[in-house]
């Protein structure tokens, strides 16, 4: 079995994994990183979105072996020392979640969206989050949250995103 060395939320792990093991299952079942959920089996929902070397990926579409030597940030690793990331705070403030199942993926995808475009319009946010599905909120408050976080992050740009 291949051996992988992956840094997840600041901790380095070395494991033997089956070649077919999905990254999301590695995170959830081997590392107990259950903050990243699985919502589909066709890479449509985005619930499993994490950052891989700072870029968002759907962790159900990546094999654990493909993450060898790389760095993963999940929603659990966003707030060092228990502090919240501005995106997490904005989701709370704008009531951008109900059941919260899509939320980890939505937050990670939104962070990546702002990396590419620090001041997105409503339409740009809606399009940028097209790969992340939410069944509860109708998205309106998610859009608001991303705009709020964008504003806050523009004012305090030194804030680092990855752990």
């Amino acid at each position: 079995m291949p051996r992988v060395r992956i840094k997840v939320d600041g901790v380095t792990y070395e494991d033997e994994v089956e070649p077919r093991l999905l990254l999301v299952h590695y995170l959830r079942e081997r590392l107990g990183k259950v903050g990243t959920p699985v919502g589909c089996d066709t890479t449509n929902c985005g619930a499993c979105t994490v950052l891989l070397d700072g870029l968002s990926v759907k962790s159900c579409s990546v094999l654990a072996v493909q993450a060898d030597g790389r760095e993963i940030t999940t929603v659990e690793g966003l707030g060092p020392g228990g502090e919240l990331h501005p995106m997490q705070r904005a989701f709370h403030t704008e009531h951008a979640l109900q059941c919260g199942f899509c939320t980890p993926g939505m937050i990670m995808a939104s962070i990546d969206l702002l990396r590419e475009n620090a001041d997105p319009s409503e339409a740009e946010i809606r399009e940028g989050l097209e790969g992340n599905l939410c069944r509860c909120t109708g998205y309106q408050n998610i859009v608001r949250a991303v705009r709020r976080a964008a504003e806050e992050m523009r004012q305090a740009p030194e804030r680092e995103v990855t752990s």
Partner: peptide
Amino acid sequence: DARLITGRTQWTD
């Protein structure tokens, strides 16, 4: 929200 936005949720799975 506190648990839901930080991934400290308890889903059955």
